[in-house]
């Protein structure tokens, strides 16, 4: 048992005890909320299908790898290992496929190498920006997202730079 295993049960326990104390009809409130949750889930289904469809076509076409092979001399000059580059590009698009890449890096180099540590920090410090944006905006029917995408990707790039800087500072 880890300490983090206690977080979810404690949250659930606290919410229910607090609700009973405040005389909320907890049973009815739960059903009402569950209904709302299922509705949201059904509402986001078309958004998910639409987005995953586009992401999969892009990923399976292999076009990213070709683009990256053009860019690799630039990254080599910056002393960034070649095999980490696909991860930087995939991370904002798809969480599961970037995790597969981290797994591949661990398999070929081991988790305790420079590239292994860099991959760990990279995967841990940012999120799937493009996926989250389309899901969250799509769920409430926002059409114009203004500067959200640029802002999100900017934070991701900062995360990539920070990962490289801090892995170098803390380990080497």
């Amino acid at each position: 048992m880890k300490v983090t295993d206690f977080i979810i049960p404690l949250i659930a326990l606290f919410i229910i005890i607090y609700g009973v104390k405040k005389k909320v009809q907890v049973y009815d409130a739960f059903i009402e909320g569950a209904k709302e949750g299922i509705q949201t889930c059904i509402e986001i289904f078309p958004v998910l299908i639409t987005m995953i469809f586009a992401i999969n076509i892009l990923l399976k076409s292999n076009v990213l790898n070709v683009v990256l092979s053009f860019l690799s001399p630039l990254f080599e000059a910056l002393n960034i290992p070649k095999d980490i580059i696909p991860l930087m590009f995939l991370r904002p698009i798809s969480g599961s496929s970037s995790l597969v890449l981290v797994n591949d890096i661990f398999t070929s180099y081991g988790p305790d190498t420079y590239i292994g540590r860099l991959a760990s920090v990279l995967q841990g410090c940012t999120d799937t920006t493009i996926y989250v944006l389309s899901l969250y905006f799509g769920s409430v029917g926002i059409k114009k997202t203004r500067y959200a995408l640029f802002n999100g990707l900017f934070a991701d790039i900062m995360g990539i730079i920070a990962s490289i800087v801090f892995v170098n500072l803390l380990f080497y």
Binding site: I11, A12, I15, I16, Y18, G19, K21, K22, V24, V26, A29, F30, I31, E32, G33, A34, K35, E36, G37, I38, T40, C41, I42, I44, F45, L48, I49, I52, F53, N56
Partner: peptide, 28 residues
Amino acid sequence: SALKMVIEMLPLMAIWSGLMNIASKSGL
């Protein structure tokens, strides 16, 4: 794969939204 995601997400959404509705009604 999208369908699989929704199927995995549906019960989670139901349970957490249920809990959150209690938290919302109780003023938490």
